[in-house]
């Protein structure tokens, strides 16, 4: 009988020394707290945008600009953007940690994830604070009709 080598155990013990980092604990806690806050923020958002007044028919550039004229809705939407993005990013991070077996895959997937999250958070934050429904010098055909009123 030929001797075949037994493959190395897939789950060999190679745990790193405890880092004494509390990151995982805070990440876990953040998921719980942001989850609860997001339920309130998102359902509030949906109620105000889709239900109150004329409801979904009222949504256009002007409606959004009107909302973001108030610091209350700016902060509301900013909080929603940041919490949702961080909550989702952390969720994907744990999925990558759980299912990517090779360190290379794990690292590259995380890099893509963090770049994507950063771009969306920065872009979203910028839009919330600098939104202009009628930018000067834009093609009039593309603008909402209320821009021509003034």
């Amino acid at each position: 009988m030929s001797t075949t080598s037994i493959p190395a155990p897939r789950t060999g013990y190679s745990r790193h020394k405890s880092s004494r980092s509390k990151f995982e604990m805070f990440a876990w806690l953040f998921m719980r707290i942001s989850g609860i806050v997001l339920v309130i923020l998102i359902f509030g958002h949906l109620f105000v945008n889709l239900w109150v007044g004329e409801g979904v028919q009222a949504i256009d550039f002007g409606f959004v600009a009107g909302k973001w004229a108030s610091p209350f809705w700016q902060i509301w939407d900013l909080l929603m953007l940041w919490l949702a993005m961080l909550h989702g990013t952390n969720g994907l991070r744990t999925i990558i940690m759980d299912y990517a077996e090779k360190p290379g895959t794990r690292m590259s997937l995380q890099v893509i994830l963090y770049i994507a999250a950063t771009v969306i958070i920065v872009l979203g934050t910028l839009v919330i604070f600098t939104f202009d429904p009628c930018p000067a010098g834009a093609d009039p055909a593309l603008l909402a009709n209320f821009c021509h009123a003034g």
């Binding site: 790193h16 004494r20 995982e24 604990m25």
Partner: peptide, 11 residues
């Protein structure tokens, strides 16, 4: 402290 590790209860 040991179970507060990256590979501890939070997984």
């Amino acid at each position: 402290e040991i179970l507060n590790d990256k590979e501890g209860v939070w997984r």
